[in-house]
Design a binder for these strands. Structure first.
Lengths: 199, 199
DNA sequence: TAAAAGAACGAACGGTCGTGCTATTTTTAA
DNA sequence: TTAAAAATAGCACGACCGTTCGTTCTTTTA
């Protein structure tokens, strides 16, 4: 019972974030403005503003919220799979689905290219996220090595990089050329990867 | 003799683009403003503005200029290599180097995530670029199949996607975690790729 | 050297930006 | 039901946005 009895402020704050998330998917975190956001949720600028205290804090909240959804969508369901290749594949498949779930463009990945060569709290948050998920991916790979489904000599960090690359490739192609074709390419690439790292 | 006797206007236009390119590398094409650009080149806003007619045209010019550099840096030198795997490898290596050449963040790739889910001439230009380079990459792969250095059954479009993914992975990691480590990962990934597609 | 063309400036425009303030309304708690 | 607290609106601000316009200075051409 985490979200029971949400106060009015909390629920509208959630509504704002929801709306901002859709907007950021089209315009990026940087393209977000309080004015247009207020118009979309049907509030005044100052009304929206008061919930966050600053635009940067709103962006930060958005990043957090996105991260929560991401983990829920990609990592959590995989826990139902047995450790090893099954679980790793589940993560990757869900990751592919995540791109589609977000209409072909991902706020979190967009934030990487917006903030990777900048300083500030948003950069720090993005870096933390990416580091964490790369680590989680490598961990999943490690389990698949331990079950013997991947070769014992597997460099799991390298494999995590290569899987992540496929995700980036899919994200890239989905945005430019369409989701379906991109997903097929990505599926095949991942299958190849698993095959080439096999025992 | 293309750039001989450049008129004054042409040369300052070049200077502006040069400066804008560096700025766009930090802030993205979207983050570019005529005011800050004018300040950096030491001109008035209107003086800068007059060279392009609109901000969008400036961004478009920047995209064109970047494309020219990119081709010059990545594709042109590879022509000195014999057709086949040598040339393909040369393209990929130069591509890796291109990321470093641009200080770890590439304007052209940045433009993809800025404009992939938008409409307009900038989106169109980005799409044209990416389509062209993917095609060129696939073509390079085709030659390597014809020389017998890659398997006859190779799906060159799939291979092009996978190579491109590695480039994206490298770009991602270079921006967040540093160039050197990213390049090593990318090198190994490409080597694996070539190996797994071998004859 | 004179005339025409081009380049750059400075000021101003209407907008929008994020952010403070002070009211007013609505929700919550006693 | 009433008082306190929270949520929202309204307005104004200074800054900056892209763009336009008329003017001035510099370069090119004849």
């Amino acid at each position: 019972m985490a979200t029971v009895n949400p106060t009015k402020g909390e629920s509208t704050r959630e509504r704002i974030i929801e709306s901002a998330y859709g907007m950021a998917r089209r315009e990026g975190l940087e393209g977000l403005t309080i004015g247009s956001l207020a118009a979309e949720v049907g509030m005044s600028k100052s009304g929206v503003f008061a919930h966050f205290g600053s635009l940067e804090d709103l962006q930060l909240a958005l990043l957090d919220s996105g991260a929560r959804r991401f983990v829920e969508h990609v990592f959590t369901p995989a826990l139902k799979q047995p450790r090893g290749l099954k679980r790793l594949a589940s993560v990757v498949e869900a990751w592919f689905g995540w791109v589609h779930f977000n209409g072909g463009s991902c706020v979190l990945l967009g934030a990487v290219s917006e903030y990777d060569s900048r300083e500030g709290v948003l950069h720090d948050a993005v870096l933390r996220q990416q580091t964490e998920w790369r680590r989680a991916l490598a961990k999943s790979a490690t389990l698949a090595v331990e079950t013997g489904e991947l070769g014992a000599a597997t460099d799991v960090e390298q494999l995590a990089f290569e899987i992540y690359s496929v995700v980036l490739g899919m994200n890239h192609d989905a945005g430019l050329f369409g989701y379906e074709a991109a997903r097929q390419r990505a599926e095949r690439a991942f299958a190849r990867l698993v095959g080439s790292y096999g025992p």
